[in-house]
Protein backbone atom coordinates (compact mmCIF):
# COMPACT_ATOMS: atom_id res chain seq x y z
CA UNK A 1 0.00 0.00 0.00
CA UNK A 2 1.44 3.39 -1.03
CA UNK A 3 1.54 5.84 1.82
CA UNK A 4 1.52 9.45 0.65
CA UNK A 5 1.95 12.70 2.47
CA UNK A 6 -1.04 14.99 2.14
CA UNK A 7 -0.31 18.26 3.92
CA UNK A 8 1.04 17.20 7.32
CA UNK A 9 -0.58 13.82 7.35
CA UNK A 10 0.72 10.49 6.02
CA UNK A 11 -2.12 8.54 4.47
CA UNK A 12 -2.69 5.86 1.82
CA UNK A 13 -5.39 7.95 0.11
CA UNK A 14 -5.83 7.27 -3.62
CA UNK A 15 -8.10 9.70 -5.46
CA UNK A 16 -8.02 7.74 -8.74
CA UNK A 17 -9.03 4.55 -6.94
CA UNK A 18 -11.80 6.42 -5.09
CA UNK A 19 -13.28 7.63 -8.40
CA UNK A 20 -13.16 4.12 -9.90
CA UNK A 21 -14.66 2.59 -6.78
CA UNK A 22 -17.43 5.18 -6.70
CA UNK A 23 -18.38 4.29 -10.31
CA UNK A 24 -18.22 0.55 -9.54
CA UNK A 25 -20.39 1.14 -6.47
CA UNK A 26 -23.07 2.95 -8.50
CA UNK A 27 -23.08 0.18 -11.14
CA UNK A 28 -23.44 -2.43 -8.37
CA UNK A 29 -26.39 -0.53 -6.88
CA UNK A 30 -28.03 -0.47 -10.32
CA UNK A 31 -27.45 -4.23 -10.72
CA UNK A 32 -28.91 -4.94 -7.26
CA UNK A 33 -31.96 -2.81 -8.10
CA UNK A 34 -32.33 -4.72 -11.37
CA UNK A 35 -32.19 -8.05 -9.48
CA UNK A 36 -35.00 -6.86 -7.18
CA UNK A 37 -37.10 -5.69 -10.15
CA UNK A 38 -36.56 -9.02 -11.92
CA UNK A 39 -37.63 -10.85 -8.77
CA UNK A 40 -40.77 -8.71 -8.60
CA UNK A 41 -41.48 -9.48 -12.25
CA UNK A 42 -41.22 -13.19 -11.52
CA UNK A 43 -37.99 -13.83 -13.39
CA UNK A 44 -36.29 -15.02 -10.24
CA UNK A 45 -38.97 -17.23 -8.79
CA UNK A 46 -42.73 -16.75 -8.51
CA UNK A 47 -43.50 -13.04 -8.76
CA UNK A 48 -45.98 -10.52 -10.06
CA UNK A 49 -46.05 -12.12 -13.51
CA UNK A 50 -47.92 -15.15 -12.09
CA UNK A 51 -47.67 -18.68 -13.43
CA UNK A 52 -46.76 -20.02 -16.88
CA UNK A 53 -49.05 -22.18 -18.97
CA UNK A 54 -48.52 -24.76 -21.67
CA UNK A 55 -51.30 -26.38 -23.67
CA UNK A 56 -51.39 -29.14 -26.23
CA UNK A 57 -52.46 -28.10 -29.76
CA UNK A 58 -55.83 -29.90 -29.39
CA UNK A 59 -56.29 -28.26 -25.95
CA UNK A 60 -56.84 -31.62 -24.30
CA UNK A 61 -53.90 -31.27 -21.90
CA UNK A 62 -52.94 -28.08 -20.15
CA UNK A 63 -50.37 -27.45 -17.43
CA UNK A 64 -49.88 -24.46 -15.15
CA UNK A 65 -46.52 -24.07 -13.40
CA UNK A 66 -43.93 -21.58 -12.24
CA UNK A 67 -41.35 -20.99 -14.96
CA UNK A 68 -38.75 -20.21 -12.31
CA UNK A 69 -38.45 -22.23 -9.14
CA UNK A 70 -35.85 -22.76 -6.43
CA UNK A 71 -33.66 -25.74 -5.62
CA UNK A 72 -35.23 -27.93 -2.89
CA UNK A 73 -38.07 -25.47 -2.36
CA UNK A 74 -41.71 -26.56 -2.50
CA UNK A 75 -43.36 -25.90 -5.83
CA UNK A 76 -46.67 -26.78 -7.39
CA UNK A 77 -47.90 -27.72 -10.84
CA UNK A 78 -51.44 -28.20 -12.08
CA UNK A 79 -52.34 -30.54 -14.94
CA UNK A 80 -55.78 -30.30 -16.56
CA UNK A 81 -56.84 -33.12 -18.85
CA UNK A 82 -60.01 -33.21 -20.93
CA UNK A 83 -61.46 -36.48 -22.13
CA UNK A 84 -64.36 -37.37 -24.40
CA UNK A 85 -65.39 -40.39 -22.33
CA UNK A 86 -65.66 -41.01 -18.59
CA UNK A 87 -64.25 -44.03 -16.81
CA UNK A 88 -60.50 -44.51 -16.80
CA UNK A 89 -57.97 -41.86 -17.71
CA UNK A 90 -54.22 -42.24 -18.03
CA UNK A 91 -51.77 -39.36 -17.80
CA UNK A 92 -48.04 -39.71 -18.32
CA UNK A 93 -45.12 -37.53 -17.22
CA UNK A 94 -41.64 -37.78 -18.72
CA UNK A 95 -39.32 -39.88 -16.60
CA UNK A 96 -36.39 -37.44 -16.90
CA UNK A 97 -38.45 -34.73 -15.27
CA UNK A 98 -39.68 -36.96 -12.46
CA UNK A 99 -36.10 -38.07 -11.75
CA UNK A 100 -35.11 -34.41 -11.34
CA UNK A 101 -37.71 -33.61 -8.71
CA UNK A 102 -38.72 -35.00 -5.34
CA UNK A 103 -42.43 -35.69 -5.77
CA UNK A 104 -44.08 -34.97 -2.44
CA UNK A 105 -47.70 -35.50 -3.37
CA UNK A 106 -50.04 -36.00 -6.32
CA UNK A 107 -53.71 -35.14 -5.85
CA UNK A 108 -55.91 -36.96 -6.59
CA UNK A 109 -53.85 -40.04 -5.88
CA UNK A 110 -53.52 -42.27 -8.95
CA UNK A 111 -55.05 -45.73 -8.85
CA UNK A 112 -52.05 -47.21 -10.58
CA UNK A 113 -48.55 -46.22 -11.62
CA UNK A 114 -46.93 -47.90 -14.60
CA UNK A 115 -43.31 -47.39 -15.59
CA UNK A 116 -42.64 -47.39 -19.32
CA UNK A 117 -39.64 -46.37 -21.38
CA UNK A 118 -39.03 -42.67 -20.75
CA UNK A 119 -42.45 -42.16 -19.20
CA UNK A 120 -44.36 -42.90 -16.03
CA UNK A 121 -48.10 -43.49 -16.49
CA UNK A 122 -50.57 -42.55 -13.79
CA UNK A 123 -54.02 -44.13 -13.98
CA UNK A 124 -57.12 -42.40 -12.58
CA UNK A 125 -60.78 -43.45 -12.41
CA UNK A 126 -63.30 -40.77 -13.37
CA UNK A 127 -66.90 -40.49 -12.39
CA UNK A 128 -69.18 -41.49 -15.29
CA UNK A 129 -70.23 -37.93 -16.12
CA UNK A 130 -66.82 -36.27 -15.50
CA UNK A 131 -65.03 -35.12 -18.64
CA UNK A 132 -62.15 -33.24 -17.08
CA UNK A 133 -59.53 -34.10 -14.51
CA UNK A 134 -57.39 -31.64 -12.60
CA UNK A 135 -54.23 -33.02 -11.02
CA UNK A 136 -52.06 -31.12 -8.56
CA UNK A 137 -48.39 -32.02 -8.19
CA UNK A 138 -46.41 -30.88 -5.18
CA UNK A 139 -42.66 -31.28 -5.59
CA UNK A 140 -39.18 -29.97 -4.87
CA UNK A 141 -36.61 -29.60 -7.68
CA UNK A 142 -33.50 -31.66 -6.94
CA UNK A 143 -31.07 -30.02 -9.34
CA UNK A 144 -30.19 -26.52 -10.42
CA UNK A 145 -30.56 -25.24 -13.98
CA UNK A 146 -32.95 -25.81 -16.86
CA UNK A 147 -35.52 -28.53 -16.20
CA UNK A 148 -37.59 -29.68 -19.17
CA UNK A 149 -40.39 -32.18 -19.23
CA UNK A 150 -43.45 -33.33 -21.06
CA UNK A 151 -46.89 -34.44 -19.99
CA UNK A 152 -49.44 -36.27 -22.06
CA UNK A 153 -52.65 -38.18 -22.22
CA UNK A 154 -53.70 -40.28 -25.21
CA UNK A 155 -52.31 -38.55 -28.31
CA UNK A 156 -52.02 -35.14 -26.68
CA UNK A 157 -48.66 -33.96 -25.43
CA UNK A 158 -47.54 -30.76 -23.80
CA UNK A 159 -43.96 -29.64 -23.32
CA UNK A 160 -42.79 -27.34 -20.56
CA UNK A 161 -39.60 -26.08 -19.03
CA UNK A 162 -38.62 -24.50 -15.74
CA UNK A 163 -35.47 -22.82 -14.51
CA UNK A 164 -34.29 -23.90 -11.09
CA UNK A 165 -32.35 -21.25 -9.17
CA UNK A 166 -29.83 -22.38 -6.57
Amino acid sequence: MDIKRVGDIEIEEDAAYQRRFHKAQRVSWALMSLAVLLALAGLAGPGLSGTDESESPDRAVKTEYNGTVFHQKDSEMTIKVKTSEGGRLSVWISRDYLESVYMKQMLPRPEEVIAAEGKIYFGFRLDGSARELEISLYFQPLRVGRLSGSIGSGKSTVEFSQFVFP
Binding site: G7, E13, Y17
Partner: peptide
Protein backbone atom coordinates in the same frame (compact mmCIF):
# COMPACT_ATOMS: atom_id res chain seq x y z
CA UNK B 1 -1.29 -7.37 -3.53
CA UNK B 2 -1.86 -3.76 -2.57
CA UNK B 3 -4.25 -3.37 -5.48
CA UNK B 4 -6.55 -6.15 -4.27
CA UNK B 5 -6.28 -4.86 -0.71
CA UNK B 6 -7.55 -1.48 -1.92
CA UNK B 7 -10.57 -3.02 -3.66
CA UNK B 8 -11.49 -5.29 -0.77
CA UNK B 9 -10.72 -3.06 2.20
CA UNK B 10 -10.85 0.39 0.61
CA UNK B 11 -8.61 3.29 1.54
CA UNK B 12 -8.96 6.10 4.08
CA UNK B 13 -10.35 9.32 2.65
CA UNK B 14 -9.73 12.85 3.87
CA UNK B 15 -13.16 14.45 4.27
CA UNK B 16 -12.15 17.73 5.96
CA UNK B 17 -9.06 19.85 5.67
Amino acid sequence: SGRLDKWIEGTPVIIMK
